[in-house]
Structure formats: structure tokens, C-alpha cells
Design a protein around this nucleic acid. Structure first.
Length: 515
RNA sequence: GGCCCCAUAGUCUAGCGGUCAGGACGUUGCCCUCUCAAGGCAGUAACACGGGUUCAAAUCCCGUUGGGGCUACCA
């Protein structure tokens, strides 16, 4: 049975590179009906943090990558590593090293100064029993085969070729630290072997470590698993992805309003392909995934494409689902920054439903939906911005002398005409009797559309020339969903109030408009 | 420095000896249109370089260049 694992160290948040590795492992195992497990490699007590551990687990959950076994922690398996270390010691495959960090550092800088490879001298390699005092601080080093001139090789499934390294390149590396905690290369081999991992899919930053691990598998009498090294994700400057390239933490994407299906889809296509397929559900990924089509070269993270995918997946959600998702992240984001405006949770209603459906094609993230609902969420009065005056200036009541206006060039809107129009609009809205209509959302929007169209044509007005004034009156913005939807979402009372408020705004700025 | 890995448009990629080098994001133009989007249509743009092998090379081999990784009592 195929069994894979994702083995992050809790020394940082789960970032998108790690998430992609986890995803590859997960869908590879599922493709073969196998198991996927999560193992926390917390052997670096200096840098490991509980908070990061929790972040990793939460991120994995959010992405839907569930471990088939309870999450394991290396810090809870110390006795196991000790046991195997002793075995190697007993068999003469490892030895205690009493060299101090200072003397090691000295040797190293000396070798570098001489232009030689900085490798361990092997000073403690052949200490006799009576030359040792295990009560003294010491590490355990693995006895490699330096000098035998042979190669250690392993096959990499992604490159579809063997990678080999000469033993002269492999140092007697430390497997057990002074404090009795194993190093990465040692613990990872024991865990993967004991946990029955059949395929190791990991970042290619581990490619150079693999020969050491293969040597360890042999010394321990374990069968090595299959290896597959995925190249790294780079930032847009071609450098290894880091915080300065913007968001890298998975949870940050959640909070920024991305859907997990979008992130997963983006990540799977960053380095893997299935012909020309771009949109893939988790099930489809599982069905089609293979190592053969994983790219060997590094990929650059491209947020534009992620946004495109996110927009795509948002369109597939119902308005009600989106409201739930938006409220969910608003709660989180508001804990961090207490912006009163955003604290409000959105109450789902038919008005909200129509509005969100109208907004869907206009946004790329959940956060953006809420931002663009601002005019609706704002229950008080709109503070009309002065930059709206330029739109008011363009207003012409009588459209038949369009050319006259254009040709006269300087002519500004006539405030009396603007107000006349707004008053007419008020009358129109009152006559709609929106509150008394018994229509569902889309039927009501249609009714508003027909009525407004009739109202305009009866006055020889066109939507084209009048819509903007209606829009800015009702929303305070130059950009909004269609005005029919806006009127429906706002409802009669708020629509009338805003028109009235806007009339006041126009009156108060008459001087500016006629300037 | 040494060792290892990688190389198709701005980006992600298809390709696995013979293709008009295909798709997607982006970008540009047009259509649609109450603004902005979305959508539709059209366009733009790539085999890093140099040698081989072969009738034929983006594809195979070798160099060069460029990028990345490892070289820890980090993972």
C-alpha cells in the first residue's frame, strides 16, 4: 500500500510551498487508495513553537488535507531514536564524538583558509574504549565511508534518473546531539522506515541530504523508500519565496479572502500538469495525479492567476455560502484590527443575496465582496465625496441638445435640473411601492428594471445618461453593481432617504457645481 | 569554493526525433453595456547560448552561461 507523509518542522507558519508539498503527498496517496500522514518534526527545541504547530494543523484542516493517522510528534519518540542510535553504536557504525563546538569551528575555519572542504577531521572516529568517558558531553556521529571511492545513489522519481554522490563528499555527520535529541537526517529515516512510508515527496532542498539518508537506511537495515524531489517555489524576482514577496502563510490567504479550493487548484498547477487542464477539483486531482508530470524546474508564484481561480470558485458558491465564509474571516480579521466598520456580520437576506450575486463577477476575493457591499452595510447616511461633483457636472436633463452641450464645452450642469431630476426619481420610487410587492428577488429586480425603463422613456431620458447620477446618489460611489439591483437591495426607505440626502449635498455644493 | 539539481512567452505549463511549438494567467484591441466587472471574439509574446548525434532536434549527448539547493549539535 502506498503511504506518504508531510513532515514539516514547526519553526514557522505553514507556507504555500509546504502546502503544495503536503498536497502532492496527499493526492498521490489517495490516487493509489493509500494513506497520508502528518508528522511534526519538532526536534529543534530552540526554534520550534507550539503556535506554529497549531498553525500547521489548522492550515491543513482548512485545505482539507486530513491525516489518516493521529498526528505524530518526533519530540515524543525520543526513546525510539535512542534505541536505534545505540544499535549503530554497538555495531560500530556510529561513534561518540567529544569534540567541542569551539574546536570544530577552529578546524573548519582552518580548512576553509587552506581552501579545502570544511569536513570533520575524524578525530574521535577511532577512540578506544578506555579513551572514552560517556559521562562527558558528546554527540554521536555516523561513520560514513569516506575514502572508499564509491558512490551512493538513489533514484529520483521526478527526474526519472539516478542521483549519485561520491562518498568523499559525505562527512561523518551528527545523528545525536549532546542533549540526546536526534538530528533531522537521523530521525527522519527512522520515522519513515518505522511508519512504513513508501514514497517520500518533498522539496528539493532535501535532495543533497538524501544520500546521507540512504546510507542510514542501509546501516539500519531498512529498505529505502522511493524518493521524489519537487522543486521550490520562487518569488516574482526569482528568489526563494519569503515574507518580503508578500503573503506566504496559508492562513494569510484564508484571511485575505481566498477559498481553499482556489489555493489548492493554483498550487497543484504550479509544478504539475494534466494536459491543458486548469480547473481541477480535489477529486479530479486525485484521479489524475502522477509524479511523471511534475515539473523539474522551480516555479514562480503568480498571485494574478490565483486571483483568477479564486474568482472562478467564488462564482460557484451560493450567496448564502459566501456570506457564511465572509463572516467567518471577518471575525478573525477583526480580532487583529478593530475596524468598527468591518466588525458587522452580514445578515443573510434576499436583498443580500441579490446584491452578492450582482457582485460576484466583479470581485476576486471574499474580502472584496464585503468592501463593495459598503454602501449597503452602511446603515447611516452616506458622506458624499467631493470628487463626485465632476460626475454631477456631466448631468444634462434634456438629452436632445446633447451636441449643444458638447460644443459649448464649458457649460456645467444646472443644479435646478439636477434637483428636478432627483425629485422626479423620488416620485418614481414612491410609486413603485417596493414594500408592498410580493415578488421574489430576481422578479422584483426585473420589475424595477421595467418600471425604471418606462419612467425614463416617458420623460425621453436614457439610462445611459441618467444612471450615473442615480448610482452616486444611492451608493456614493462611481462604481457599483447595476442600479436596479442597488435599488432592490436598499429597499424603498433607504433609497428615498439617500436621494433626499443627495439633494441636500447638491444644494450645499451649488457653488462648486456652477463654478 | 566544492558537490547536487534545473533551463519553452512577463508567469504557470503542453510537448517526450518530423507540430503552423498547443493551453492558461496577464496584457492589447473589438463586441456586449447604466459605471465597473464578468462574458464572447481577435491579437501579442517562448524553445538561454555554443557544439555535436541524426535525413530530421524544443525533444538525445557534451560544454558555456544563468538560476536554485546542500555544504549545522536547522529542517
Amino acid at each position: 500500500m502506498v503511504k506518504t507523509r508531510f513532515a514539516p518542522s514547526p519553526t514557522g507558519y505553514l507556507h504555500i510551498g509546504g502546502a503544495r508539498t503536503a498536497l502532492f503527498n496527499y493526492i498521490y496517496a489517495k490516487h493509489f487508495g493509500g494513506k497520508f500522514i502528518l508528522r511534526i518534526e519538532d526536534t529543534d527545541s530552540e526554534r520550534s513553537l507550539k503556535a506554529y504547530e497549531e498553525d500547521i494543523i489548522k492550515s491543513m484542516q482548512w485545505l482539507g488535507l486530513v491525516s489518516d493517522e493521529p498526528v505524530s510528534y518526533q519530540s515524543q519518540r525520543l526513546n525510539i531514536y535512542k534505541e536505534y542510535c545505540q544499535k549503530l553504536l554497538d555495531e560500530g557504525k556510529a561513534y561518540n564524538c567529544y569534540c567541542t563546538a569551539e574546536s570544530l569551528e577552529e578546524d573548519k575555519s582552518k580548512l576553509i583558509a587552506e581552501g579545502k572542504k570544511p569536513m570533520y577531521s575524524g578525530k574521535c572516529r577511532n577512540l578506544l574504549g578506555d579513551e572514552q568517558n560517556v559521562n562527558l558531553p558528546h554527540v554521536v556521529r555516523f561513520k560514513t565511508h569516506r575514502g572508499d571511492g564509491r558512490l551512493t545513489k538513489f533514484k529520483d522519481l521526478i527526474r526519472d534518473q539516478s542521483v549519485s554522490v561520491n562518498h568523499s563528499e559525505i562527512d561523518d555527520f551528527v545523528i545525536m546531539r549532546t542533549d540526546g535529541i536526534p538530528t533531522y537526517n537521523f530521525a527522519v529515516v527512522i520515522d519513515d522506515a518505522l511508519m512504513g512510508i513508501t514514497h517520500i515527496i518533498r522539496g528539493d532542498d532535501h535532495l543533497s541530504n538524501t544520500p546521507k539518508q540512504v546510507l542510514l537506511y542501509e546501516a539500519l537495515g531498512f529498505e529505502p523508500p522511493a524518493f521524489a524531489h519537487v522543486s521550490m517555489i520562487l518569488g516574482n524576482d526569482g528568489k526563494r519565496l519569503s515574507k518580503r514577496h508578500g503573503a506566504t502563510a496559508v492562513m494569510q490567504y484564508k484571511n485575505d479572502g481566498f477559498l481553499p479550493e482556489a489555493l489548492i487548484n493554483y498550487l497543484v498547477r504550479l509544478g504539475w500538469s494534466h494536459g491543458n487542464d486548469e480547473i481541477l477539483s480535489l477529486d479530479e486531482m486525485i484521479q489524475y495525479f502522477d509524479l511523471k508530470h511534475i515539473s523539474k524546474s522551480a516555479g514562480v508564484f503568480n498571485k494574478e492567476k490565483l486571483l483568477w481561480l479564486n474568482a472562478h470558485y467564488m462564482k460557484q458558491k451560493t450567496a448564502e455560502e459566501l456570506v457564511g465564509l465572509i463572516n467567518d474571516i471577518s471575525a478573525i480579521n477583526n480580532n487583529e484590527s478593530n475596524n468598527a466598520e468591518n466588525v458587522k456580520t452580514i445578515q443573510y437576506s434576499e436583498n443580500v443575496s441579490v446584491l452578492i450575486d450582482a457582485l460576484k463577477p466583479r470581485v476576486k476575493t471574499l474580502v472584496e465582496i464585503k468592501e463593495k457591499m459598503g454602501f449597503y452595510l452602511n446603515e447611516g447616511s452616506i458622506i458624499y465625496d467631493m470628487n463626485l461633483l465632476s460626475e454631477i457636472d456631466k448631468f444634462k436633463l434634456n438629452e436632445s441638445d446633447d451636441n449643444e452641450y458638447k460644443n459649448s464645452g464649458q457649460k456645467k450642469a444646472n443644479v435646478d435640473e439636477v434637483i428636478y431630476f432627483l425629485n422626479q426619481l423620488t416620485g418614481f420610487v414612491k410609486n413603485l411601492h417596493l414594500d408592498r410587492l410580493n415578488l421574489n428577488g430576481s422578479a422584483c429586480v426585473n420589475f424595477i428594471k421595467e418600471s425604471l425603463d418606462n419612467f425614463f422613456s416617458a420623460n425621453k431620458w436614457s439610462l445611459k445618461h441618467k444612471a450615473m447620477l442615480v448610482r452616486i446618489a444611492l451608493t456614493g460611489e462611481k462604481i457599483s453593481p447595476g442600479i436596479y439591483e442597488v435599488i432592490f437591495a436598499l429597499g424603498e426607505a433607504r433609497t428615498l432617504k439617500r436621494i433626499n440626502d443627495f439633494i441636500e449635498f447638491v444644494k450645499n455644493n451649488e457653488v462648486m457645481i456652477n463654478k
